[in-house]
């Protein structure tokens, strides 16, 4: 499978990445190569092999339901570009 320019533009948009016009064809080629590798993998007979969700052969540790964090709002908000009334301010988003 090979990717078109429009695919690259769409993927970039979904990931909120800005891609320079001149780089698009190279990205399309590189991503298509990755698809080629995936196609090779898909050709392998995997009947009876359980899909892997994680490379480690381990299971998730659970934590006790306890409040262990304290309020560090002032600390965190020092790195925020803009705050007001305890809120983080961001460019307007509306539905």
């Amino acid at each position: 499978m090979s990717l078109e320019r429009s695919d690259v533009e769409r993927i970039a948009h979904l990931a909120r990445l800005e891609v320079a016009e001149k780089d698009i064809s190279e990205y399309a080629r590189n991503l298509s190569n990755i698809f080629g590798l995936v196609a090779q993998l898909e050709a392998v007979d995997t009947d009876g092999v359980k899909p892997m969700a994680h490379p480690f052969d381990a299971v998730q540790r659970l934590r006790a339901d306890e409040v262990t964090e304290s309020n560090q709002r002032d600390h965190f908000q020092q790195i925020a570009p803009k705050v007001a009334d305890g809120l983080y301010l961001v460019p307007k988003v509306l539905d």
Binding site: E66, V67, E69, R73, Q77, Y88
Partner: peptide, 20 residues
């Protein structure tokens, strides 16, 4: 009492961002 992936409280009506 706490969040699904962190130890922050989930009490309703707290001051903004004090439980984040």
């Amino acid at each position: 009492q706490s969040k699904i992936f962190s130890g922050a409280a989930i009490a309703y009506g707290a001051e903004p961002n004090t439980q984040a």
